[in-house]
Design a protein around this nucleic acid. Structure first.
Lengths: 207, 207
DNA sequence: TAGCGTAGAGAACGTTCGTTCTCGGCGGGG
DNA sequence: CCCCGCCGAGAACGAACGTTCTCTACGCTA
């Protein structure tokens, strides 16, 4: 087996097992067995569990942001539409079978104090997500796109944890409504002329 | 030593150690040593680690919600003021030394799949926080207090995780601004007359 | 074909941890 | 004063895990 193939299989196995069961509940031998790779090769490719976990999170970061950006780009529309499409995509993600919250928040809570490699990857991921929102927010005609991006980031983070802990809240829909309200309120000229109509329609459709 | 005193000391030790280092990084003997209690008595009071963790989270739930409610009640003012005071209190909490995010989210990420007692306590805590926000939101003159409460819940949850992972974002301040905007937008008659002035003042004071 | 480097399978090792057991001592009732 | 039961201290036990080591077999090269 090619070393690169083995690395791919190991990362796929790590993502499946770590995300589903948590990190400390999955042993190196579990990952090895799921990937069908020898322990020796595993340790040649990833010299410790922390390295494997960091690589898993790195791969997941790339995939997650890629799928989000693809969905948003496919939606098209104005900057406002694209920012709202972020929350549509969150709703699709939350509804996927096996959804267990944000892998990065989970990993941070699990390894918070004792895994600097992992902490760095988590921070990088959240920072890149924030930058992505900021890029979209720069397309708005608002005086403070960074503030809007950070407020939407808070909404998205809150939706992820709420969806994991209290699935019945339909967090993505509430986050979408809140995001629309924040976008309207952030316009220096006030909400667009039909904002009231849109708000009423959004509320009644969420009953 | 009284059994009730021993339980109190054990819960205090558990809170200090579990919150600071995470749950699986703290052994039963660490808690026993910190509390100055014998292992035998520990197991008489809490028959397993999972019971001890659940009891720790229950005690923390009570303390956390109590401190929040005290701060909000001491603030007084309108329902709107009290809801915003929730975010003021979050800012104070985030700034405390040793802040490491929400203990319940951390525990959920750490034990997500394998500790039903703990999951139940986490869900109860978040449910009670949501009910608290809902009680405050019922004092607003808005058509959908439940929606407002849930949107503010998302903001608060997002602020907690963002503050833990990216402290430099000053999440509480952004969450406060977003909450004010959401409250203005949720009024059926539109924002109060001075909402624009308040928004501008809030923005400039955050530079 | 002989020799060598390497890979795979899994045993082995050392550590940690949750939980239970043993032993020595202390206090309270006859 | 003596005996019995309980308690604290800590050893002990079994399991799990991260990591390394051993042994065997295979493929490549001359």
């Amino acid at each position: 087996m090619n070393r690169s193939d083995a690395a791919d299989r190991l990362l796929a196995a790590a993502e499946k097992l770590y995300y589903a069961r948590g990190i400390h509940a999955v042993g190196m031998d579990d990952v090895r067995a799921e990937a069908g790779v020898s322990l020796k090769l595993l340790y040649q490719l990833f010299p410790s569990k922390e390295h494997l976990v960091a690589a898993y999170l790195d791969a997941r970061d790339e995939g997650w942001r890629g799928r989000l950006a693809d969905h948003v780009a496919a939606t098209g529309g104005s900057a406002r539409d694209q920012l709202l499409a972020v929350f549509d995509w969150l709703g699709l993600w939350f509804a996927e079978p096996g959804f267990r919250g944000c892998a990065f928040i989970n990993a941070f809570g699990e390894l918070g104090g004792s895994a600097p490699l992992v902490i760095a990857v988590v921070r990088r991921h959240k920072g890149l997500f924030r930058e992505y929102l900021l890029d979209l927010a720069r397309g708005l005609d608002v005086p403070d796109p960074a503030g809007v991006a950070e407020q939407l980031l808070l909404l998205a983070e809150g939706a992820m944890t709420a969806a994991a802990v209290l699935p019945e809240l339909r967090a993505a829909r509430q986050a979408h409504r809140a995001a629309a309200a924040l976008l309207d309120a952030s316009l220096p000229s006030g909400p667009p002329a039909d904002a009231g109509a849109r708000r009423r329609a959004t509320q009644s459709s969420s009953a």
